[in-house]
Amino acid sequence: MSSGAPHGHPNVNPKTPPDLTLTGTLDREATQRLCEEVRATLQATDADVLVCDVADLGPPVLAAIDALARLQLTARRAGGRIRLRNPAPDLRELLHLVGLPIEIEMGRRTEEREPPRRVQEAVEARDPPLA
């Protein structure tokens, strides 16, 4: 007699990743404390992702980028990675500019969604060329 199939999708991890909230300005002391917290959380939960809520993080300056890079490195050394939740557009742009490969959660609240983009219609053969 065989048992039924297990519940849920076999490739989906049912565990919710642990959260860490980053607030204010991140100086060296705060960064060292957060690195220890990242390491301890990943090891204690056996998670491979730690979600960092950065909605209340100070202005996106290079010190914040340095702190996020150190947190990512610490997470990698502990066998995981970090993912950012609620980054400000300026922070996303600065991360892109410096080339720091940190995941960003794409889920948005309904009121933050962008309006749908206009659909470009097909060009007709009789349309004049664009200047």
Rank of each mutant, 00 (worst) to 15 (best):
P116I: 09
P17R: 11
P116D: 03
P128G: 05
R109N: 13
R118Y: 10
G58L: 05
A40N: 03
A55T: 02
H9P: 01
T110K: 03
R83I: 09
H9Q: 09
T31N: 06
P17A: 09
D56N: 11
A88K: 10
E124C: 08
T45W: 13
R83G: 09
P129R: 10
D53M: 04
V61G: 12
E105D: 15
A64W: 00
H9S: 08
E37C: 05
C52V: 13
P17Y: 07
P59S: 02
P18C: 10
T16I: 11
R39S: 14
G58W: 12
D66T: 15
G80M: 11
D48T: 01
P101D: 13
D48F: 00
S2Q: 12
V54M: 06
L57Y: 01
E93Q: 09
D56M: 06
D90N: 03
A47Q: 09
L84M: 11
T110C: 03
R28C: 07
Q43A: 08
L84I: 09
Q72C: 06
H96I: 15
Q120G: 01
C52L: 14
A69I: 02
H96F: 15
V98Q: 02
D19R: 08
M106Q: 13
D127A: 07
G79C: 06
A131R: 14
L91G: 01
P18N: 10
R33G: 03
M1L: 15
P129I: 08
P18Q: 07
Q120T: 06
L94Y: 00
A122I: 12
T41E: 06
R117I: 05
A5T: 12
